[in-house]
Amino acid sequence: MTERSRISCEQALRLLAEYLDGELSDLARHDVRHHLDTCRSCYSRAEFETRLRLEVTALARVPVPNQFEERVRTLIGHFESIPDPPPPTSADGH
């Protein structure tokens, strides 16, 4: 086991956003991970920030109005094929 200097709460919190974004180097990520494993309040902070991010990410998915789905199907149905398509098959999709 390598002996590594431990990081402070201040350092961990400064790196927290990048840690949660998955953008830290292996070394830094390890340091933050270790700090969170051993520091209750920073762990708590990380949990909170994670939950908040999940709430934001959940906005990315919305129910699709039927009308809009129809619009997309129609749009795709009208696309012109590029020249030299593969030979036609019996299952054309329509």
């Binding site: 906005l59 998915r61 919305v62 795709i76 593969p86 054309d92 999709g93």
Partner: peptide, 29 residues
């Protein structure tokens, strides 16, 4: 990739599958 009949089917399937997220993202943009 050369779009042909089966490519169109595949394309439509993929697009419809992604539509909830495409629309959700587009709404916030």
């Amino acid at each position: 990739m050369n779009p042909g009949a089966d490519a169109r089917e595949w394309f439509e399937r993929e697009v419809l599958g992604a539509l909830p997220e495409l629309l959700g993202t587009a709404r916030r943009l």
